[in-house]
Write a protein that binds this DNA or RNA. Structure first.
Length: 353
DNA sequence: AAAGCGGGGCA
DNA sequence: TGCCCAGCTTT
């Protein structure tokens, strides 16, 4: 390791001592479990949004064993609105694995910790570094941005050659001592100063070392992901109300979009929706109401949702009542399961009046 | 309204 | 090794 690289860590740590954030909820009572939960949540969401989710999660699932002993519906309920629901499912599976295969303790080495679902090299390293002060380098989005700028790494990090170069730089810059502080410091620098747009270079401890700053290339580095045109799809969401005002909902398959979350029945056409209602639920008393289309963007397609509301009058056929993946939801009660954002939106705007 | 964000799973 | 998976914030 060159002298230059050592001073990188020293400068960063000095800055962190004076200016870094140390009062975030997951920086208190540090444990592998708390760091793990925060890291998974922070993968997809900003600090400000994560804080209330983290606190609710910790109140309900104070330990990894408590999480393992919970129902998936309960876990997804705490994740509703955060997105990337596969990560909540993975966390639940990983907690069960820690309970059953690791005696309730997180593995303390980078190889074994990656056997847990949802934990790769960077997240595993963050847990080991922050919770146990082990000298593992991390490479999350913040670190990628900082390293790309300081060392002028060319190319998009989605390319394996670029990613490899970034990992090498991460290994070379990560110190053996004060590793936990260093990991928090470099993430903090990326989150607060070395931001994607308008970085505050004048306040940055790496200013004198940063090639992007020297060359005024902060806006070009890191290289952006190539643009892709995403397809658009349409669906009808059918909101069926029974005589009591309860709403019919069904659980989605365990994997795929909104896996394990509760949703309204979906159809391609209004005709199909009406036929299905007739066949499985009975007669309806009012005309089918169409409501405004709600558009929802995923990473790989855009979904246009046409909500339909049907009010039933005849009694419900028993067959649908018996299934565990179908239910009638009393909208004035708390929902015990995961709900995708547009489903929550529809419940709030069209059902709970 | 459109762009940008991030990491792991899996074919 | 390249594509799939979300929903929120920022511009």
């Amino acid at each position: 390791m060159s002298k230059n690289k050592l001073s990188f860590a020293d400068k960063l740590l000095h800055w962190f001592d004076d200016h870094g954030r140390k009062d975030l909820p997951w920086q208190q009572d540090i444990s592998p479990y708390r760091v793990w939960v925060s890291e998974i949540m922070l993968q997809q969401t900003q600090v400000k949004t994560v804080i209330p989710y983290f606190q609710r999660f910790m109140e309900s699932f104070p330990t990894v064993t408590a999480l393992a002993n919970s129902e998936q519906d309960e876990v997804l309920k705490h994740w509703s609105g955060l997105g990337y629901y596969a990560r909540a499912r993975n966390m639940h599976a990983a907690a069960i694995m820690v309970r059953d295969e690791f005696n309730g303790e997180f593995p303390r080495d980078i190889e074994n910790i990656q056997h847990l679902k949802g934990i790769g090299r960077s997240t595993g390293a963050a847990i080991l570094s922050i919770a146990s002060n082990l000298p593992e380098p991390i490479l999350d989005g913040n670190v990628k941005r900082v390293l790309s700028r300081v060392f002028a790494v060319e190319g998009w990090a989605g390319k394996s050659a670029v990613l490899k170069e970034l990992w090498t730089l991460a290994e070379q810059t990560t110190p053996k001592t004060r590793n936990a502080d260093y990991t928090q410091a470099i993430m903090d620098l990326g989150a607060t100063l070395c931001t994607r747009s308008k970085p505050r270079c004048d306040d940055c401890p790496m200013k004198s070392d940063c090639i992007a700053f020297a060359d005024s290339r902060q806006a070009e580095l890191p290289a952006k992901k190539p643009k892709k045109i995403i397809p658009e799809k349409k669906t009808i969401m059918l909101i069926v109300k029974d005589e009591a005002g309860d709403v019919f909902m069904q659980k989605r398959p365990p994997t795929g979009i909104w896996g394990g979350l509760w949703c309204f029945p979906q159809f391609e056409t209004q005709h199909e929706a009406e036929n299905w209602t007739q066949e499985f639920l009975g007669e309806w008393s009012e005309k089918v109401q169409r409501h405004d289309v709600l558009s929802h963007t995923f990473s790989h397609f855009k979904l246009h949702i046409q909500p339909l509301i049907i009010q039933l009058k005849a009694p419900i056929k028993m067959s649908v009542m018996e299934k565990t993946d179908k239910l009638w939801y009393n909208v004035n009660t708390e929902f015990n399961g995961g709900l995708a954002a547009p489903v929550s939106t529809l419940l709030n705007t069209l059902v709970r009046q």
